[in-house]
């Protein structure tokens, strides 16, 4: 007898071996919380959307005064306005993708939709990073090309450090901060989505390579 036939025969026999759940067991079960990957992605994505939005609001007003001296205030307000419009766009896309996730779809379509939802938030994060880098570079370029105003605005009074040394320290600090932040974010995404999406991406790739 063929092994697979044997297996099939055994498979058919096992029905009787399973415990039958009572009405109450099932009732209790459907009132428990799901721990599906979609739910986790949703929670993490909402935290990310909030985090980046709040980060923008958290910049203190005193910062603006410094930028005012460089005539950068208008530039910052315009970028901020545009930024909020883009954020709303992202939130809309995220919501639309999330809503389209449907457990009755075929396996490959379901995976595709989950990955798309995740991608929207990835793009949002890339966008924020790019914005952060571009604005930092632009502002620093303007500030460092006006060293006099910069020294006046930022250099602490009663210090023995020379103006040039101060500027060098400032520049190095800015560059180091930029790299540290990017590094930390990279690490965060590797860890969070590495854990969460490893299984999904592996299975998705398997279906994709099949087609």
């Amino acid at each position: 007898m063929d092994e697979l036939d044997l297996l099939k025969k055994d498979w058919k026999k096992q029905n009787a071996n399973y415990p039958e759940l009572s009405y109450n067991d099932i009732y209790k079960m459907i009132h428990k919380k799901s721990s599906s990957i979609v739910k986790w992605i949703l929670i993490i994505c909402i935290i990310e959307l909030l985090f980046w939005s709040l980060l923008n609001l958290a910049i203190p007003e005193s910062y603006m005064e410094i930028y005012d001296k460089f005539n950068l205030k208008t530039f910052l307000y315009i970028t901020q306005g545009a930024h909020y419009l883009i954020v709303i766009g992202f939130i809309y896309l995220f919501y639309k993708n999330y809503k389209s996730i449907c457990v009755i779809d075929s396996t490959s379509r379901l995976m595709q939709k989950i990955i798309n939802t995740r991608k929207t938030v990835n793009y949002y994060v890339y966008y924020n990073l790019a914005l952060y880098i571009v604005i930092s570079v632009v502002i620093n370029m303007i500030m460092f090309s006006n060293p006099d105003i910069m020294l006046e605005a930022l250099m602490p009074k009663n210090t023995s450090i020379e103006g040039d040394t101060f500027l060098t320290i400032m520049l190095i600090t800015q560059i180091v901060t930029l790299f540290v932040i990017i590094g930390l974010l990279w690490l965060y995404y590797r860890i969070i989505y590495g854990i969460l999406l490893r299984k999904l991406s592996k299975n998705y790739t398997e279906l994709e390579t099949l087609e």
Partner: peptide, 18 residues
């Protein structure tokens, strides 16, 4: 049929634990 689909989708895709 509907149960087969959701069952497999959950096991393959939605279920978080390996």
């Amino acid at each position: 049929t509907w149960m087969y689909r959701i069952g497999l989708n959950t096991a393959i895709t939605l279920y978080r634990k390996s």
